[in-house]
Design a protein around this nucleic acid. Structure first.
Length: 491
RNA sequence: GGUCGCGUGGCCGAGUGGCUAGGCAGAGCUCUGCAAAAGCUUCUACGGCGGUUCGAAUCCGUCCGCGACCUCCA
């Protein structure tokens, strides 16, 4: 595999494919965002992190990426039966506030979470309620092309008719007749749909519904799958490069998106479909209903029963990145604590780079460190391998620091640049917090350390140990080396 | 039940027809007043059973176990 060519695993073909943008250097990236009816949990964060890496890496490769991630603020029904209730309205009723207050509250909360985990903001963050007109137009197009039918003020997508000409199930690998066998028993009751697999693209609103809009079919709300189709088309065009989301959205959500676009007369909308795998806890998917989900703040404070202690958001980010995005990753305190220590070591290594003294030649293999990092990222964003390479390079950095290897001033610059690019820009790990007045602290500690040095020279170890112990209590760790003593603030 | 996927050392997790993943933990050594850090060395491994092959953890079959999806899901 070439070092310079990016390969992406395409869910549509189940293969790693060369990444060739439709209109280079531009790349359209659409990610299914949150439904803002409650707080995002850690499993949600993992998915958004996956595409944060995609966005960051493509940007690093000098693509001009337009990153669109929607906010679902209407149309996501609790279920898809005739009287399905909107998730946001349901929550609004429970909290006794306006639906749009729910939307605002959890949109704010979501943004807080993305900041916490250092997720880049999308270039466009469209909301479903802001694109009702576009959605109505899309419904009309679908009807015009013969793939939608109206019943009692609702409009359904005609999957059976669509499947006569197109492949409904191409993304998820499902066969329509097999689906039929499996769910036949669920078909009882007053269904408006002609066919069990049909799905609502416009839903008639009940009189009590607060959020509803006028349409050619009466007042109602857009179907859940529709918003992504309408908004991705509006901002990225009929065909765009990458569409991402969680594995659990593959079917039916993404399958329906394809059908809606194709059914409205467009070509198949997406060149590369990407799906991130689930975060599991004790082997089961993290979900609110199982009670095994943590909210970001619970994670930091360690207040959830399954957490032994609080963890820094960057520890969690690093932990997720130590697994490939297409694999499930299982949460455990032990694993998280391992990541915590590993990340700390990596960050210390970066600081060491500042102390390294250049020499007249370079004895380490700088090129291979750099190329390895690119080749693993190019292999479907393989962050765990990239991190492994960064740890390999860390050994070299440590040897350089001890003077056992040498590096020229230019190579040192390249090495520093490589680490800061990969760790901060591409992997998006944030450096440890600096103190507000570093120089003052530095000089103060120098005075203290010179006192300690004197005590040690006088073999007054009780004083030297006292200084070290007391500093340790305020999270300042001392390390004695051959050439003196260094200090570090622990988090 | 259907579809797809997974099963790797004490833990987490890559990868792959022959060649070290990496992190954390463990052991030894170097360094040290002690410690910490770092370096070097080192120990545990590919679910069971068959098959293909010169060679399989990797491919095929089968069995066991686990998970996701199957119209709420990131």
């Amino acid at each position: 595999m070439s070092n310079k060519q990016l390969f992406i695993y395409n869910s549509l073909t189940s293969k790693k494919e060369k990444f060739v943008p439709i209109n280079p250097p531009f790349v359209g990236l659409y990610v299914c965002g949150p439904t803002v009816y409650s707080e995002a949990h850690l499993g949600n964060v993992r998915t958004f992190l996956t595409f944060d890496i995609v966005y960051r890496y493509l940007t690093h490769l000098n693509y001009k990426v337009r990153y669109v991630r929607n906010i679902t603020d209407v149309g996501h029904l609790v279920d898809d039966v005739d009287f399905g209730e909107d998730k946001i309205e349901k929550r609004a009723r429970l909290e006794k506030i306006e639906p749009m207050e729910i939307v605002q509250k959890y949109t704010n909360s979501f943004h807080f979470t993305t900041q916490l985990f250092n997720l880049k903001n999308p270039d466009i963050e469209p909301s479903a309620t802001g694109h009702i007109i576009e959605q109505i137009e899309m419904v009309q197009k679908i009807i015009t092309h013969g793939y939608g039918y109206e019943i009692n003020g609702s409009v359904y997508f005609d999957v059976k008719k669509y499947a006569e000409k197109f492949n409904y199930g191409e993304l998820s690998g499902r066969k329509l007749d097999e689906l039929l066998e499996q769910t036949r028993e669920n078909l009882e009751g007053g269904e408006e749909k002609r066919f069990f697999a049909d799905f609502a693209i416009w839903k008639k609103a009940s009189p009590e519904t607060i959020m509803k809009w006028n349409s050619p079919w009466g007042t109602g709300v857009p179907g859940w799958h529709l918003e992504c189709s309408a908004m991705s088309t509006k901002y990225l065009g009929q065909q765009f490069d990458i569409h991402g989301g969680g594995m659990d959205l593959k079917f039916p959500h993404h399958e329906c998106e394809i059908a809606q676009s194709v059914g409205s007369g467009s070509p198949s909308p997406v060149k590369y479909w990407m799906h991130g795998n689930m975060l599991t806890v004790n082997g089961s998917k993290m979900s609110k209903s199982l009670g095994n989900s943590f909210l970001p703040l619970e994670l930091i404070s360690g207040s959830h029963p399954l957490l032994e202690k609080g963890y820094d958001p960057m520890t969690v980010r690093f932990f997720f990145l130590q697994a490939q995005y297409r694999s499930t990753v299982d949460f455990s305190n032990e694993a998280l604590q391992a990541s915590e220590k590993g990340l700390k070591r990596l960050m210390s290594g970066i600081k060491l780079l500042e102390n390294i003294k250049p020499s007249y030649s370079t004895s380490i293999n700088l090129t291979s460190i750099i190329e390895n990092c690119y080749s693993s990222m190019n292999d479907d964003f393989n962050t765990p391998i990239t991190i492994a390479h960064l740890f390999d390079g860390l050994k070299q950095i440590n040897l350089l620091n001890e003077g056992k290897e040498t590096i020229t001033i230019n190579d040192l610059k390249t090495l520093k640049n490589h680490y800061s690019t990969f760790i901060f820009e591409i992997l998006g790990l944030m450096p440890e917090k600096e103190t507000s007045n570093p120089e003052l602290l530095n000089e103060t500690l120098n005075i203290i350390l010179s006192l300690r040095k004197k005590a040690k020279e006088n073999k007054d170890y009780s004083t030297s140990d006292f200084i070290r112990d007391e500093l340790s209590k305020i999270n300042i760790t001392l390390k004695d080396n051959k050439d003196g003593t260094t200090w570090k603030i622990e988090n």
